[in-house]
């Protein structure tokens, strides 16, 4: 039996996962918690949020996220994969910034529209 704190929502349920009996989850308040408890022990994953260098934008960084959760072991590597990339504004919301991050199949996409800098 493993004890976990659910991170699916701010409620933070205390989960008990029976890893010897088909990963049955108790202590959850919703089905998403049950799914989290099982995944967290078998193949833990996280959505990665970071920023990418942006030229000619209202700001010099554009926020991005992976469009699906990636294996937890890849968190730092995924963030580092953005280091060498520079995008040019304007950027559209949801625009793909980097495909197949570290072989995970997930893409980094822009989480805001980044307008071009107003001409001086």
């Amino acid at each position: 039996m493993k004890e976990l704190i659910c991170i699916v929502c701010p409620r933070g349920c205390h989960l008990h996962v029976d890893d010897e009996n088909g990963y049955a989850v108790s202590g959850n308040s919703c089905p998403r918690g049950a799914a989290y408890g099982k995944t967290e022990l078998i193949n833990p994953t996280r959505t990665v949020t970071s920023t990418v260098r942006c030229e000619n934008g209202l700001y010099p960084r554009c926020p991005v996220k992976t469009d699906r959760a990636v294996p937890k072991a890849l968190l730092r590597e995924a963030a580092r994969a953005l280091d060498g990339i520079t995008v040019k504004a304007p950027i559209k919301l949801g625009q793909v910034i980097l495909e197949d991050v570290c072989g995970s199949g997930a893409s980094f996409i822009a989480t805001r529209a980044m307008p071009a800098k107003a001409p001086a």
Partner: peptide
């Protein structure tokens, strides 16, 4: 820029800029 916003209002998990957007 992290996610976790909007689970109550939009019933999905959004980042801050997406929620504002």
């Amino acid at each position: 820029i992290h996610n976790g916003f909007g689970l109550h209002h939009f019933h999905e998990e959004l980042t801050g800029p997406e929620y504002a957007g």
